Simulated assay, not measured.
Amino acid sequence: MQAKLRAALLRPLTIVCLGLVGPCVQAHEPGAHVHGQAVLRVVVDGNALSAELESPLDNILGFEHAPGSAQEQQAVTLAVTALRKPGGILLPTPAAQCTLQKVSLASAALTPAMLGEPGTATPPSADEPGHADLDGEFSWQCAKPEFLHSLRVDLFLAFPRLHKMQVEVAGPKGQSATTLTGTHRTVQW
């Protein structure tokens, strides 16, 4: 899924990346799994806005395994509802009149059905060792892309275990990177 999204996102940026192929490819390599931190990759291409989230599942749920109790299942339900809500946690510049078109969520620790995705309802093994991530893909179409210049990231409000986010942007002015926190939640380009 990530390789497909990366390829789709990088295609329109080929011209921007000429002469910078190394840094462009390197910017899209997966990051380390660090609790409290996440990565958000944003691409602005004409009237299309796309964002790819990569976060330890612990930041979102407080655990990194298949839900084993009613309380853990409720945490999954609440998180999925927040992530899928239009205008909920990722807010493009209001004047650009962007409409959320698609949200895709994936995690090795949760079934597609738990995440509101088509797929098997068989839960993954609760005994799976290691760390699990939540990957999210979000896409918008903007009626007035000339006014699109920022994305407010309210993930910090919805998921208080998240403290820091590395954001990479490929947009009309080239590439940039910044760090967001609970008190600095807007990325601009």
Rank of each mutant, 00 (worst) to 15 (best):
T122E: 13
A108Y: 06
F138H: 02
L91V: 12
Q141A: 15
L155I: 08
G119R: 03
P92C: 06
K144W: 14
T93Q: 06
W140F: 09
P123H: 04
L90C: 03
S107V: 00
E117T: 00
L110E: 03
A143G: 11
A158I: 05
L151N: 04
L155N: 04
P112C: 08
H149T: 14
S104D: 13
C142S: 09
P129M: 10
L105F: 00
A108S: 14
C98Y: 04
P118H: 03
D127I: 05
L155H: 05
K102V: 08
A95W: 10
C142Y: 07
P123M: 04
D135I: 14
E146L: 13
G119A: 07
A158H: 06
C98Q: 04
P129H: 12
F138L: 02
A106F: 01
A96K: 03
L100I: 04
V153M: 10
E137M: 02
H149W: 14
S139E: 06
G119T: 04
L105E: 00
A126N: 09
A113E: 14
A96T: 05
A106Q: 07
P112I: 05
T99C: 11
D135H: 15
M114K: 08
A132N: 11
A108F: 08
Q97G: 10
S139I: 04
L157G: 15
G136N: 00
D127S: 12
L148W: 10
A121P: 07
G119I: 02
A108E: 11
E128N: 14
A121Q: 12
G116N: 04
C98R: 02
F147G: 13
A96Y: 07
P92D: 11
L91S: 07
A143F: 11
S125D: 12
L148M: 11
T120P: 09
P92F: 08
G116H: 06
D154Y: 12
P145Y: 08
D133K: 10
T111Q: 10
T122W: 11
S139R: 05
Q97F: 11
A109S: 06
A132L: 05
C142Q: 09
L148G: 02
A121Y: 11
H149D: 15
L100W: 03
A158F: 09
V103W: 02
D133A: 13
F147M: 15
F138G: 01
A132P: 05
R152Q: 15
Q97K: 13
P123Q: 05
H149F: 14
Q97A: 13
L155V: 06
E146D: 15
Q141R: 14
T120A: 12
T122V: 15
L134K: 01
C142N: 08
E128Y: 09
F156M: 06
E146G: 13
H149R: 14
G119D: 04
T99N: 12
L91F: 07
C142I: 08
L148V: 07
A106K: 00
A132E: 10
G136P: 01
P94H: 09
D135E: 15
G116F: 04
P94Q: 11
P118L: 01
S104M: 11
S150V: 06
Q101Y: 03
L105R: 00
T99D: 12
A132S: 13
A106C: 05
A158V: 08
M114R: 10
C142M: 10
